[in-house]
Structures are given as structure tokens and as C-alpha cells.
Simulated assay, not measured.
Amino acid sequence: MAIGILMLLLVLSSHALADVCATDDTGAMLCLPEPARRIVTLSPGATELVFAAGAGGQVVAVVEYSDYPPEANALPSIGSHTRIDLEALVALKPDLVVTWVSGNPVEQVATLETLGVASFAIEPRTFEGVSSVLERLAVLAGTGAEGDREAARFRRGINELAEQYRGRKPVRVFYQVWDQPLMTINDEHLIGKVISMCGGQNIFAGVDRLVPRIGPEDVLAGNPEAILSGGADEDGNSYTSLERWQSFTSMKAVEADNLFIIPASPISRPTPRLLEGARTVCEKLDVARARLQ
């Protein structure tokens, strides 16, 4: 009898050890009986992260604007990140849904949980958070080696960039997220952290909201020395404008011609491509420094 009980305990223990577990960005632990083979991503950033973690071949559906890597364009869409087609999602029988903490509708995510669909919420807010989520997604997808390798590459690149720009002369920066309505970011936002790393001083660093709406008078009062906007597609075509600032000739950024529109996706999504976006920001701020001398 004792031997039988021992064998049962060993079997149960082996099953428990076979589970793959990770903690999401809300602090919730998710355990799957085996690595996920059918993954649905509910934000463009989540799509990029899952592919970067080596699990792109396991993604069965995405949401609108999941345009990177190019292979993601061929995947079926189940709506937008703000309006998910739950019926289509459930019909795909996913064993993992990667959600966006502040971007997906709370009610729809709760419905998924009610239906017993395994969900993993992500929203990296730091450079380390990007590397960490890559590692955790790779655990859940069974692609640990690929995820760990990409996470290490990103950490190394960010550290090298931070060292390269350490001690650069500060440049007062306004980052324009959108022009109508006028929106920016604070220093809790990853873009704010990129600006700081590059030696910039975000003139809206201390505002309460992550992505606040502001007025033109607020920008004028801050008198930035450089204005940046992530408003260009991958081909360099602008879909936002900095033209409104040109008439304010007393503003230091305008006087020095330090108005820059940069590719949007690399700087605005919390993925490994943020390293590419950060390099662009640092280079533009170096140009701005030279023009201010």
C-alpha cells in the first residue's frame, strides 16, 4: 500500500513539474499543462513580442495593425484591440491569449476568463520589462532558447546605448504623440525613458497621466529645444505634422530647425524594435545639440 501511494505521488509530482508557468504583468500566475501551440495576440505589440520570443509559428490570429514582422500580415484578424470578435476568437480554440493590460476592453478579457480561455496580460513599462516579457512568453510557448537570446540581445543593446549617451549635454524635448488632439507622454512612458537615456529632458516629464492631452500654450511655456514625433510609417511617409509649430519662431526648437518626425512603430511599441527607435531618438538629439551650439 505504501509503495502504491508513493508511486501515485511521484506521478502527480511529474505532472506538476510538466506544467509551464509564468507571472504576467498584473502579477497573476498562469500555468499551462504544456507549451502553448495555438496563440492569439490582442495587440500589435503582443504580436511582435510573441514572434520575437520565437513563437511566431504558433500564432493563429492577431488584431488590426499587427503588421510586424511581415509574416503577421498573413494571419487572420479578430477585430481591433479595443473591439475583439470573441466568437471568432473562441472558435479558434486557442490555448493561450496574450492580452494588453490597459488597451483591451476589461469586460471582454473577463469574458475570456469566464469561458476558461487561458490569458496572459502584458504591458512592459521599462527596458527590463521588455526583456522579461520575452522570456516569460518563451516559457509559455516552449521556445525558451530563442526568447532568452532575444531578451539578452535587447538588454545588451540598451546598456550599450545608455553608456554611449551618458553625460551628453541635456536637450529640452517635447514629444508629440498626436497633433489633433495634441498629446504627449510623461517620464513613466517608455518613450520618456528613451528620451532620458539619450540625454533629453522631457518638458512634460512630471505630468500625472501616461499620455496626457495638452494645449499649444503648454508647449510654448516649456520652450523645448527639440520637438520629436513618432509619426512616420516604415517607408518614411508622415501621417502627423509638426507644421503648426513653424510659426512660433521664438521657440528654440523652431529657431534651430530641431523638428523631427521619426518612424512610429519602433519607438511606440514595447518590443525589441524599441532599441531601433531609441537609436533614432539619440541620433536626432545629437543633431539637435549640434544645431544649438
Rank of each mutant, 00 (worst) to 15 (best):
I3N: 03
L9I: 12
D19T: 14
T23C: 09
G27N: 04
L30K: 14
E34D: 13
R38G: 02
I39K: 02
S43I: 07
T47P: 00
T47E: 01
T47Y: 00
E48S: 08
V50K: 04
V50M: 02
V50P: 02
A53Y: 04
G56W: 03
G57T: 04
V63L: 03
E64P: 01
E64T: 10
E64D: 10
Y68C: 04
P69K: 08
G79T: 06
L86Q: 01
E87W: 00
A91P: 10
L92G: 15
L92Q: 06
P94A: 06
G103V: 03
N104I: 03
P105Y: 04
P105I: 04
V109C: 11
A110M: 09
A110Q: 12
L112K: 03
G116C: 14
A118E: 09
I122G: 03
E123R: 15
P124F: 11
T126P: 00
G129Q: 12
S132C: 00
L134H: 13
L134I: 09
L134T: 09
V139E: 06
E146Q: 09
F154Y: 15
R155T: 09
I158S: 07
N159Y: 08
L161R: 14
Q164C: 04
R166W: 12
Y175P: 06
Q176L: 04
M183P: 08
I185M: 05
N186W: 07
E188A: 11
K193R: 15
V194S: 04
V194T: 12
V194Q: 04
M197Q: 09
M197V: 14
G200S: 15
F204Q: 05
R209V: 06
G215R: 10
P216S: 09
E217K: 08
V219K: 00
V219F: 00
A221D: 09
A232L: 03
G236D: 11
Y239G: 04
L242F: 02
M251N: 02
N258F: 08
P263Y: 03
R269K: 10
T280D: 13
D286N: 08
V287E: 15
A288L: 14
R291C: 07
